[in-house]
Design a binder for these strands. Structure first.
Lengths: 239, 239
DNA sequence: ACCTGAACACCGTTCAAGT
DNA sequence: ACCTGAACACCGTTCAAGT
């Protein structure tokens, strides 16, 4: 059932359509930046299924094996993409807005970016920050924002991780089909759930995923803030 | 760099080692249940990379193509696994324990199960409940627990989705390497974050992921409970 | 150093043939 | 209906040869 695409020949053809013979070219035709932007265009045009090393090479007018002079593996390409996308995450609120609003803005923009790139989430969630400079920069600004808001240093990283976990999970949820909770023929065996699905609060303006994200994010932000105060109280009592 | 395994011949060999010739066998040798448990054993022994249709067939003493009489695709196998694993999620607290404790127990067991099966998370997060009877049963018991605890029906599904999103994201986090936040050579450009990583609260008994999960879960539970109360207040004022 | 082109060792899936 | 065995259309990756 696989769609059979009309394939151009496998030989490398540059953007201008002229053939390039083997051997080191006069000036390099590839770079990490070019690979990243070509991958992004490919995904925007045809989705993550279309992101193969072959397709990427074809779009760059190069043989697939040429990519391996710049990346170690396809996983490397995903890391490049991930770090690039961090540019789209809004950390501008930290330092200007109160902590809850700054976190809220950050979280929504973070979720929105990766909802469009959910196949990257398993990659990010496990990604060492070494070699992901933009990601690290985001963590730095985030940390400064938390400390400025009075967060005790030992809680900053766990709080960020907790928020990120919620964001990653929620980004998947955006990709879920509308009818994910339709119980169908099994409705009789799950009467309470079936009824709750029908009665669920849906935002007038947005998708069902937005209602859950708003509820959870607001709950998480106020709950974390309460734990910060508890920690401060315990510390002042103990000290 | 791929490891080259010594392969047995591709012809189907039953568990007893005798060869089975083509044609419908006297009694069926496969079923969804057998496929599910073989897949589980394969994953436990060698991880998700080893879960290929070929390897699955080999373990079942069958040709790969035989699997397609029982599942439509490899994705189908993942769905079978996912629903099976829901047996390990603890919903026993609902109806006996107070809501926060019941939710806490459920969330920890849910995270623990899927932390061991993180490749399934992208599958579950988008899975229609139709055709996942155990999953649906879990939602039913969860919904009953929420309603019994006084949750307004419109908020039940969004609250469950928010908790699940946090759980899925946290399950990935368990799989992350210990040194995920080591900033390495970039430490100079991220002084606050580097310091916060060193100062972070680590549980004496568990992994770093556990500290973040506990912090986030407790925050989320108390934050959601507060929103439930707000909703009830607004409703009584409006009514 | 950085490209080409051929080759390698896999994948998941389909399908005619067999009982 | 439910197996086998061969074939198909891909994958990602490696490597000698070329400049």
């Amino acid at each position: 059932m696989r769609k059979r695409a009309t394939r151009r020949p496998a030989i490398a053809v540059s953007a201008s359509g002229t053939h390039r013979s083997a051997g080191r070219p006069a000036q390099k035709v590839l770079s990490k930046e070019l690979i990243t932007s070509a991958a992004l265009k490919l995904i925007e045009a045809s989705g993550y299924d279309a992101l193969t090393m072959s397709a990427l090479a074809r779009r760059l007018g190069v043989a697939p094996s040429a990519l391996y002079n710049h990346v170690k593996s396809k996983h490397d390409v995903l890391l490049l993409l991930q770090d690039h996308l961090m540019n789209g995450v809004d950390v501008s609120g930290f330092g200007t807005l109160p902590w809850p609003e700054a976190v809220r803005n950050w979280a929504w923009s973070y979720r929105d970016v990766f909802a469009q790139h959910s196949p990257l989430i398993p990659v990010i969630a496990v990604l060492p920050v070494t070699g992901a400079p933009r990601t690290l920069q985001m963590y730095e600004e985030l940390t400064r924002g938390f400390l400025d808001a009075g967060w005790p240093e030992p809680l900053v990283v766990p709080a960020i991780v907790a928020l990120e976990s919620f964001i990653f999970g929620s980004a998947f949820d955006v990709a879920a089909p509308e009818d994910i909770f339709e119980t169908g023929e099994l409705a009789d065996s799950s009467p309470h759930f079936t009824s709750a699905v029908r009665a669920r609060q849906l935002p007038a303006d947005g998708a069902p995923a937005d209602a859950a994200f708003r509820l959870g994010l607001d709950g998480l932000i106020s709950g974390l803030d309460a734990q910060r105060r508890e920690w401060a109280d315990a510390a002042s009592t103990a000290g």
